[in-house]
């Protein structure tokens, strides 16, 4: 039961993008087209899940026993950077079509604050292994959801008559504001 609550909370109620402000850069940058939004969402979810597992192991089996919590940030970001590299190499070897669709997004993921944020929040909330795994999948699903909704709206927006000064980033922010308002409606869910 607890795990389901964590999943729904991460995916919808406390959506990573729209209510925790994590991963805004790809949210603004990669939400122009629906298919690239789906690919980006999948890539982020994938890396998030692996990151959650690896950083949990490193924090609880390496940093805590040796009193090295101060190295938390440095070690987490190194883990993420090398994981992304590893995932990129692995996908390129195993599945060419998948690599072609995710390829250009993978390097961008290193500097996606949603990934590091997820690892840090899991530690902050003292999640168990299972909890942080579910949390990461929920967060990835929530990220994908927000990205896909946004891309859908922006594709339609190309037909709309937006004032020149507001084209691009400005209107994206304002739409994100209305989306965040809509997502606040889920607050009573848990």
């Amino acid at each position: 039961m607890n795990l389901i609550v964590i999943f729904i909370s991460a995916a919808i109620v406390n959506n990573f993008v729209l209510s925790q402000f994590l991963g805004i850069c790809p949210f603004v940058g990669v939400s122009k087209r629906l298919d690239s939004a789906v690919s980006m969402g999948m890539a982020v979810t994938f890396v998030m899940t692996i990151t959650a597992v690896v950083t949990w192991l490193i924090y609880h089996l390496l940093l805590v026993p040796y009193n090295l919590e101060i190295l938390q940030y440095v070690s987490f970001i190194l883990v993420i950077a090398s994981l992304v590299q590893l995932v990129e190499m692995f996908i390129r070897k195993v599945s060419k079509p998948l690599y072609d669709s995710l390829g250009i997004f993978l390097p961008l993921i290193t500097t996606n604050c949603a990934i590091l944020g997820l690892a840090l929040i899991s530690v902050l909330r003292n999640y168990s292994f299972m909890e942080s795994l579910i949390y990461s999948i929920g967060a990835g699903a929530g990220f994908t959801l927000a990205l896909v909704i946004m891309a859908g709206i922006r594709e339609e927006l190309e037909l709309a008559d937006v004032p020149k000064q507001f084209q691009g980033a400005a209107i994206t922010m304002i739409i994100a504001g209305s989306l965040a308002l809509a997502f606040m409606g889920f607050a009573g869910l848990i």
């Binding site: 004032p163 507001f166 980033a169």
Partner: peptide, 14 residues
């Protein structure tokens, strides 16, 4: 709340 942040920044960029 979060929506206010998005709206204000959008208007500022505009």
């Amino acid at each position: 709340l979060p929506p206010g942040a998005f709206l204000t920044l959008g208007l500022m960029i505009g």
